[in-house]
Simulated scan of single mutants.
Amino acid sequence: MQLDAAARDRFAADLAALWPEAERGGRPLGLAVSGGPDSLALLLLAHAALPGGIAVASIDHGLRPEAAGEVALVERIAAERGVPFTPMRVTLMPGNVQAEARAARYRALARWAAEAALGAVATAHHADDQAETLLMRLNRGSGLAGLAGVRARTVLEGTELPLLRPLLGWRKAELGAIVAGEGLMAAQDPSNADPAFDRARLRARLAEADWLDPLRVAASAAHLAEGWQALEWYAELDWHEMVMRDAGDAPGFTYCANAPRIIGIETILRIIRELGGHATRSEAARAWERLWAGENASLGGVLAVPAVETVAKIGVLMRVWRFRPEPARSLN
């Protein structure tokens, strides 16, 4: 069955908004396709909108015996349409299963993108996914960075390659209808309905809440993402204007802390990274609170010491926080 031209054109417009023609350079778009209805719809839409311009990868996470068959399903569907296909299998590290699977999946996609000389990679996150993500994070008390939800365009970690989510304006039911209309039987991952997972429990409750519009919730996440992008821009200015690298051989930074708390937290995180450490946003928030109160703070192997001084370049009293690698602790 021929894919509906209106759906094809709608997808092409959504994709162009994230990945303009001028950026593509003739390179193919890589698709992460699991065999579920959402990602199969992504394959069908992209094949219709970019004939001869896509490649597909499918990943077996080694969690379910059915996964190998799902990879084979995607391979068959891609082959029927003349789309290059790459199967992959990943090994998960111990820990949170879903988080580890996600991390391993994106590492594998980054390797594949480099080997296949792709121009971008797309995943099939849609409006219902975005609504679930935002509501879960609201329930956890997430900050603005978390409430921004799944970004429509980011980069694959460790690369400069665009990572695209062109289906964030599409409902799950729409995508399922596209797959059914092509006469395809999508794979169903039982973990999507397993109440052991927070997302599955929330999904079941949302199905009962006919007053909640996932498209509107997803739009709110997009507005929050715009707000977060503005704050990232301000944090970049704060870094360049208010942070000074210390002179001499010893590593260290001096931060004239005059920005709002949410900006200061981002600047602290960047200082910690520059000094070779690692900290979470919540740890940086606690450090900001201690420093603002005039107390030392230690995080990510870095010691921060607060003071109030007249800053020469500004000529006024300001909070000045100095960051140095923590001294080695004595073994005695």
Rank of each mutant, 00 (worst) to 15 (best):
A5C: 08
A5V: 12
R10N: 13
R10Y: 04
D14P: 09
A16W: 04
L18F: 09
W19P: 10
P20D: 14
R24F: 12
L31M: 12
G36F: 00
P37R: 10
P37K: 14
L43T: 03
P51L: 02
G52I: 06
V56L: 02
I59Y: 04
G62E: 11
A67H: 01
R76S: 14
G82H: 05
T86H: 11
T86A: 15
V90G: 10
T91E: 15
T91N: 11
L92R: 03
P94M: 12
Q98F: 01
A99V: 12
A99I: 09
E100S: 10
A103T: 11
A104P: 08
A104C: 13
R105P: 05
R105V: 07
W112N: 03
A114C: 06
A114M: 04
G119D: 11
A122D: 06
A124Q: 00
A127C: 09
D128Q: 10
D128N: 13
Q130N: 12
E132M: 06
T133R: 01
T133V: 13
R137H: 10
S142L: 01
L147C: 09
L147H: 09
R153Y: 12
T154F: 00
T159W: 05
E160I: 03
L163I: 04
R171L: 15
A173H: 06
L175T: 07
V179P: 06
S191Y: 01
N192G: 05
D198H: 01
A200G: 09
L202Q: 06
L202R: 04
L206F: 10
W211Q: 15
D213V: 14
L215H: 09
S220F: 08
A221C: 05
E226D: 15
G227L: 15
Q229Y: 01
L231M: 15
A235P: 04
E236N: 04
D238T: 11
W239I: 01
M244R: 13
M244A: 15
R245K: 14
R245E: 14
P251Q: 06
N258R: 12
I262W: 00
E266T: 02
I268V: 13
I268W: 01
R270Q: 12
R270Y: 02
I271F: 00
H278F: 01
S282E: 09
A284L: 00
R286P: 00
G294S: 12
E295K: 09
A297L: 12
G301Q: 06
A304H: 02
T310W: 01
V311K: 06
K313I: 14
I314V: 14
W321D: 10
W321R: 07
P327C: 07
